[in-house]
């Protein structure tokens, strides 16, 4: 029972991160039907930039408190990640918008490789370590524990997702995003400059990705130039699980995937008589992906199949 609660807590933390990243995949897919495989790299860049800022502030001995230092990392990472994502859209994806779908997909993979190597050259081959500044307070629930970093991740993720929902469902820009995703030609007839709406979509996804990058970095204590690939793939699985193109679906899919992974890792040893250990945790995301694609390709909340007329 204690393992169960502990893994639930860990799963919700991972899930919050997956959800934030999955939103970027799903929003971009919803609006231009592109699976932006370079999105994971935006998360990585967010983490790397934040670490640099945090490292510099700690080194400069500013006397700022730890949460403020982490916040500063995020504040620098967000606009930089937005710039990276918007450049990507403008330079690589927009010219290919009318091209067959394979072209932008391959481009996305290419961008992902380029960004990884740029990050490697800019920072390091080796993982960056998070300075030990956070006094990670631990709260006990029976034998299970919650750390202050986990609480912070939940709070920030909840706030960000609430803000995104308000933006998408209540504001002029949000309605324009949904209109563009349903019918870009008619959106143009409404006076909507769809290029700007698409850029805004990339920017929003990148902002969430940057914050997610700071979260995972802080949670695991390291950042590495390859960290975006697996994380990005898993978040993509989460988006498919929820129904790609569907915003509440990405949130739900992210949380579920985090829970499946954590519970799977917690129990896989017991269930297989220790044939497989918790190091097999990465496999669950892909098992989920395959099951969804076989049994419910439109995902849990996806209804877009009927919508494309």
């Amino acid at each position: 029972m204690d393992t169960f609660i502990q893994q639930l807590i860990n799963g919700l933390t991972l899930g919050a991160v997956y959800a934030m990243v999955a939103l970027g995949y799903t929003m971009v897919y919803g609006i231009i039907q592109l699976i932006n495989f370079a999105h994971g790299e935006v998360v990585m860049i967010g983490a790397m930039v934040a670490f640099s800022v945090i490292g510099a502030l700690v080194g400069a001995d500013t006397g700022l408190s730890a949460p403020i230092i982490v916040l500063a990392g995020g504040v620098v990472a967000v606009p930089l990640c937005i710039a990276v994502a918007c450049t990507m859209e403008r330079v690589a994806y927009r010219p290919l918008r009318a091209a067959p779908r394979l072209a932008p997909l391959i481009t996305a993979i290419g961008i992902s490789i380029i960004l990884q190597h740029l990050a490697m050259m800019l920072w390091s081959r080796n993982p960056l370590a998070f300075p030990q500044i956070l006094d990670n307070r631990v709260f006990h629930f029976g034998a299970a524990t919650v750390t202050s970093v986990q609480l912070a991740i939940w709070t920030v993720a909840t706030l960000m997702m609430a803000a995104l929902s308000i933006l998408v469902y209540r504001t002029r820009l949000g309605i324009a995003m949904r209109a563009t995703s349903q019918n870009p030609l008619v959106a143009g007839l409404m006076g909507i400059d769809i290029n700007r709406v698409i850029l805004a979509t990339f920017a929003l996804g990148a902002a969430l990705a940057a914050i997610a990058g700071v979260m995972v970095g802080t949670y695991y204590g390291i950042a590495h130039y390859t960290m975006g690939s697996l994380l990005g793939l898993k978040a993509f699985c989460a988006a498919v699980l929820g129904g790609i193109g569907n915003i509440p679906g990405a949130m739900l899919g992210g949380l579920l995937l985090g829970l499946v992974e954590a519970l799977g890792a917690g129990y896989i040893g017991d269930l297989t008589n220790n044939w497989f250990g918790s190091n097999y945790q990465d496999v669950f995301a892909f098992i989920v992906l395959i099951l969804v694609l076989v049994f419910r390709p439109s995902g849990l909340l996806g209804e877009r199949v009927a919508d494309r007329t």
Partner: peptide
């Protein structure tokens, strides 16, 4: 447009709001 082109997943009010977008 031919075939009306309403945004089927938006409400009537939201469709009208898009008409006034500019």
């Amino acid at each position: 447009p031919e075939g009306r082109g309403v945004f089927s997943q938006l409400s009537v009010d939201e469709n009208l709001a898009m008409g006034a977008y500019s």
